[in-house]
Computed example of a mutant assay.
Amino acid sequence: MRALNNLNIVIKLAIPVVVMIAVTIGLIFFAKTGLDTLAEETQQIVDLHAARRSMALDIKAHVNEAAIQEKNLIIETRFQEMAIYEQAFREAKAEALKDLDSLIALSDSPERRTANEQLKKVVEDYFAIMGRTIAHAQLNESDEAFKVSSGEGRALRQKASQALDERANANAAALETEKHDAAELASLTSTKLIVASGAGLTLAIVLLAAITLYGVTRPLNGMTGAMGRLADGDLDVSVTGTERKDE
Score class of each variant (00 low, 15 high):
Gly131Thr: 07
Arg132Asp: 15
Thr133Trp: 02
Ile134Phe: 00
Ala135Lys: 13
Gln138Tyr: 04
Gln138His: 14
Gln138Arg: 15
Gln138Phe: 03
Leu139Ala: 12
Leu139Tyr: 12
Glu141Pro: 06
Glu141Tyr: 06
Glu141Met: 13
Ser142Pro: 06
Ser142Cys: 01
Asp143Gln: 15
Asp143Phe: 10
Glu144Ser: 10
Ala145Arg: 01
Ala145Lys: 00
Ala145Cys: 10
Phe146Met: 13
Val148Cys: 05
Val148Asn: 01
Val148Glu: 01
Ser149Gln: 15
Ser149Tyr: 03
Glu152Lys: 10
Gly153Lys: 01
Gly153Ser: 08
Gly153Val: 04
Arg154Leu: 08
Ala155Thr: 11
Leu156Ser: 08
Leu156Lys: 14
Gln158Glu: 14
Lys159Glu: 08
Ala160Gln: 01
Gln162His: 10
Leu164Asp: 00
Glu166Cys: 04
Arg167Phe: 04
Ala168Gly: 08
Asn169Ala: 10
Asn169Asp: 15
Ala172Leu: 07
Ala174Phe: 04
Ala174Pro: 12
Ala174Tyr: 02
Ala174Leu: 12
Leu175Gln: 07
Glu176Thr: 09
Thr177Trp: 05
Thr177Pro: 09
Lys179His: 06
Lys179Asp: 03
Lys179Trp: 02
His180Tyr: 08
Ala182Trp: 01
Ala182Asp: 08
Ala183Ser: 11
Leu185Thr: 07
Ala186Phe: 03
Ala186Ser: 12
Ala186Asn: 11
Ala186Arg: 13
Ser187Phe: 09
Ser187Ala: 12
Leu188Ala: 14
Thr189Leu: 04
Thr189Trp: 00
Ser190Tyr: 07
Thr191Gly: 03
Lys192Thr: 09
Lys192Gln: 14
Ile194Tyr: 12
Ile194Lys: 15
Ala196Thr: 12
Ser197Gly: 13
Gly198Asp: 11
Gly200His: 02
Leu201Thr: 09
Leu203Tyr: 11
Leu203Ala: 12
Ala204Lys: 02
Ala204Asn: 05
Ala204Phe: 01
Ile205His: 06
Ile205Glu: 11
Val206Tyr: 10
Leu207Phe: 02
Ala209Ser: 12
Ala209Cys: 08
Ala209Ile: 13
Ala210Leu: 10
Ile211Val: 13
